[in-house]
């Protein structure tokens, strides 16, 4: 391992550790995400009140819409935190690689959203009376790849919308159009597994392609965004 990659890794893990410790002590992002998606579950269950067969068809969409909105809550906070005390400016002038900061933020958000999903999935099962008909293990790669797709672009666009006038509003406006193929893959894949009608492999491959393409693009362009002056 050469020096450049070891410094990338060490900076990444130092930033990640700092972010997780901050989140562990404040629990800002996780609490707001949890409460937000709980509200979405409850409101949707009031407005639809589906039978078990129907819920299998719609719940894939509901789950991912809830997680998408909740992830935006966390993503909006991820860079705003660094603006206080000019941390981001200090980072910009430091010799640490920009991609290390980006990777740390993505990994941090990924962990938070995965924790949220692990906590919320039982609630969805209870509220919508779910019983999976397809191979349930396929939900795990779908969830991991789908979450990565949301978080990697979300972190990038959150850094982008930091420079705009109304940054909280800007993030979903930038993120949602680009995320359409990923959301389609997640929703259709989850529905395919829940109903067991058709295989979900195609959607897993689609999400994997999406992840590879956009992770590469984010890593290639993040330095430009961070240093854009």
């Amino acid at each position: 391992m050469n020096e450049a990659s070891s410094s990338l890794l060490s900076v990444t893990f130092a930033t990640l550790k700092k972010d997780i410790r901050l989140e562990w002590r404040s629990k800002d992002a996780l609490n707001s995400m949890l409460f937000f998606s709980l509200l979405v579950v409850v409101i949707f269950s009031f407005s639809f009140d589906p039978l078990a067969e129907e819920s299998r068809l719609i719940v894939g969409g509901l789950v991912w819409v809830a997680f998408l909105f909740a992830a935006v809550v966390a993503l909006n906070q991820t860079w705003a935190r660094e603006l206080r005390n000019q941390v981001l400016d200090a980072y910009r002038v430091s010799p640490a690689p920009a991609n290390a900061l980006f990777l740390a933020k993505v990994l941090g958000n990924f962990i938070f959203v995965i924790v949220l999903e692990a906590l919320m999935t039982p609630l969805f099962v209870i509220f919508y009376n779910l019983h999976v008909l397809g191979p349930a293990w396929q939900l795990i790669p779908l969830a991991l790849l789908g979450t990565w797709a949301l978080v990697v672009n979300g972190t990038f666009f959150a850094a982008m919308s930091l420079r705009t006038r109304n940054r909280e509003l800007m993030l979903p406006l930038l993120l949602f159009p680009i995320s359409i193929p990923a959301v389609l893959g997640m929703v259709a894949g989850t529905t395919a597994v829940l109903t067991g009608d058709n295989p979900a492999h195609f959607y897993i491959v689609l999400l994997l392609t999406y992840d590879v393409v956009f992770t590469t693009a984010c890593l290639g362009l993040f330095e430009t965004i961070l240093h854009a002056e």
Partner: peptide, 20 residues
């Protein structure tokens, strides 16, 4: 710079939409 980056993201997205 931000807009140019977004345009590149958009161009990457369209083939994926088509494929999906």
């Amino acid at each position: 710079m931000l807009a140019a980056a977004l345009a590149v993201f958009g161009a990457l997205d369209v083939p994926l939409v088509y494929f999906s």
